[in-house]
Simulated assay, not measured.
Amino acid sequence: MEVLVYSAKDFEIPYLEEANSKRHKLTFLSESLSSETVMNSVGYDAVSIFSADDGSAIILEKLKEFGVKYLALRCTGHDNVNLKVAARLGIKVANVPDYSPYAIAEHAVSLLLGLNRRLIESNKRVRSFNFDINGLIGFDLNNKTVGILGTGKIGSVMAKIMYGFGCKLFGYDLVQNKTLKEKYGMAYTSLEDICRQADIISIHLPLNSETHYLINKNIVDIMKPGIVIINTARGAILDTKSVLVGLESGVIGALGLDVYEHEKKLFFKDMSQAIPFEDINIIKLNIMPNVLITGHHAFLTEEALAKITEITIYNLNCWESGKENTNDLV
């Protein structure tokens, strides 16, 4: 099968080549799939994309016109792909539903610890041979209340880690996880109740019509003062403007992000020579001492990359051989 891999990163190409074992002819393109780059797909049986690529209706129609039959996602989330249009056009779509929940959850904990113990500021001082520790006070995680929004695979790992720190756990999800309740004492309750009680909130929800701007002005207004919010899920679950107001007022004590609602124009690129001054929100967030942002790399572990590429190639193999595949979204 002829496959064009959009948004191909240098670090993932060796993993893809190893998983492929020369079965498919892979062509790597560093640019993301967009209206400007979709022409490159002419002559390919399949294209593979990542979370920031454009899978909207107009792009899918172009892919169909150019003869593309398959769309292989190298990620779990698929909010960037119009699945209804793909189904109508007869384009098969598959994702990577499970690669390493540990990678994401451990990164969320890293953001939390980095913020709480002021690690960035402390290291910055030490690098300048300034060993003053004034202003670096954190808090014990032990006995703190942690609200976990989304208790699927990633949220479950996060719950286990936080339980290990001695935290009291609250969960928010449509489906309650019996194991988390029995083993870790997780109590399921409403989002509003969590916001009023939690010292820390960690977000592990998919992005859909129900979760878009789930954390908005009304929710920020009822949060426990000084709350720490960690988001390694999807950027648009947070209303950035409302969160900024919460940070400026002190209601939100700290914010850790691996995702951002307008990351599509920014992340996975070197923007150091083209600072996006038109996006005032990311500018504001980036200069706040109680905000820690990473560029959507929570997934970036050896184990996760191996699994992502293995499943991506498996999806292509299934399509080529006509084998039924539970990873198919369309």
Rank of each mutant, 00 (worst) to 15 (best):
K168H: 13
G171P: 11
V146C: 13
N143I: 06
A159C: 14
D193L: 09
P225F: 00
N216K: 12
L191R: 05
N218W: 11
A198M: 03
T151E: 00
T179A: 14
R234P: 08
D221F: 05
I222R: 12
H212K: 13
F170A: 09
S242P: 01
K168I: 13
A187N: 14
L214C: 04
S202E: 11
D173M: 05
L214F: 03
A159M: 08
G147D: 08
L238H: 00
K160T: 15
N177F: 07
N218I: 12
S242H: 01
L169D: 01
G226A: 07
V243A: 09
N216W: 06
G155K: 02
S156Y: 10
G166S: 09
K224P: 04
D221A: 15
I194S: 00
L191S: 02
G155V: 04
L174K: 14
L180Q: 13
T211P: 04
R234M: 11
G185P: 11
L205S: 05
G164L: 10
C195G: 13
S190Q: 08
H204P: 02
G155H: 05
N208Q: 05
I219K: 08
G171H: 13
D199I: 01
I237C: 07
M162G: 04
L191T: 05
V157I: 15
F170M: 15
I203E: 01
K181F: 08
C167P: 11
M162Q: 12
E192L: 04
P206I: 02
I227Q: 11
T189Y: 02
E192W: 02
D173C: 07
K217V: 05
D193V: 14
H204T: 02
G155S: 06
I219W: 04
I237G: 05
N231F: 15
I237D: 07
N216T: 13
D173G: 03
S242L: 03
V243M: 06
L191Q: 03
G226Q: 07
V175P: 06
D193A: 13
I219T: 12
K217F: 02
R234Y: 09
I215G: 06
T179G: 12
I222W: 06
A236D: 12
V220G: 00
K217G: 05
I154E: 03
G150V: 00
S209F: 11
I154K: 01
N208R: 03
I200R: 06
G152D: 10
F165I: 09
P206V: 02
C195T: 11
N218A: 14
E210V: 02
K144E: 07
N218H: 14
